[in-house]
């Protein structure tokens, strides 16, 4: 049976909740590739993915769907096909677009949860703004080198606009993205999403900081 190995942490009724959840993943590179894959494998059956980019050589070290065969191909088209290979019945919408002021915000309509997997501050703050407008919880994640952060941003809390106020770029511009950090942080985001749907205690309006080098994990911001 599909997803049967997930049934140790949820019952049939709870699995139905995931099947009915409509998720929007913005960015399907480092974090987003793992997020999209895990969403399908946890049982989510309706996913919209957004990205304007194509895979290139520099993505091969860490992006789940970057392979020698997908270089120069549209990320959303590649990821769409990969997700359909996992679940052919998936309801998938691929949006080849940047998340900026010109983005068609109607893609946020009817969405139950949004995943922030973009790689720049401007888009992260915009996603938070759109999630507040459409009253959607946002699963935030960010990575740089050995480090990551994640949390669930509830509509109106404006946590990201506070954390990134007057900032143009983060430390990833120096520390970059090694092989393992996106997969770890992405699946911690999925874990928080699962807890949130199952109404367990999750990182709601809290930011968890992760230091994989020195094994430091602490909540660094809460509202």
């Amino acid at each position: 049976m599909k997803y049967s190995r997930n049934m140790g942490i949820m019952n049939d009724f709870e699995l139905e909740k995931f099947k009915k959840t409509k998720a929007l993943v913005v960015g399907v590179g480092g974090l987003g590739g793992y997020i999209a894959s895990s969403l399908v494998r946890i049982g989510v059956s309706s996913i919209t993915i957004v990205d304007f980019d194509k895979f290139d050589d520099s993505n091969l070290n860490r992006q789940l769907f970057a392979t020698s065969k997908t270089i120069n191909k549209s990320k959303v088209e590649v990821v769409k096909q990969e997700l359909l290979d996992i679940n052919p019945e998936l309801n998938i919408t691929a949006v080849n677009s940047k998340l900026d002021e010109l983005f068609d915000k109607t893609y946020f309509e009817g969405i139950d949860v949004v995943f922030d997997a973009v790689d720049n501050i401007k888009s992260k703050v915009l996603i938070e703004k759109y999630c507040s407008i459409f009253n959607i919880p946002l699963i935030h994640g960010a990575i740089a080198g050995w480090y990551g952060q994640l949390g669930i941003i509830m509509p109106g809390s404006n946590i990201l606009s506070e954390l990134y106020k007057d900032k143009e770029k983060g430390i990833e511009s120096v520390l970059m993205s090694p092989t393992f950090t996106p997969g770890i942080v992405a699946n911690m985001m999925i874990s928080e999403f699962v807890k949130f749907i199952l109404k367990k205690e999750a990182l709601v309006n809290q930011i968890l900081y992760i230091d994989l080098l020195d094994h430091e994990y602490r909540i660094i911001y809460k509202k």
Binding site: G27, G29, G30, L31, G32, D116, A117, V118, D119, N120, I121, K124, G141, A142, I143, A144, Y147, G148, Q149, L163, Y164, K167, K169, G170, I171, E172, L175, M176, S177, P182, Y209, I220
Partner: peptide, 10 residues
């Protein structure tokens, strides 16, 4: 006192 930088990679 703890000091944290901004992080935004994806």
């Amino acid at each position: 006192l703890h000091l944290f930088p901004p992080m935004a990679g994806g």
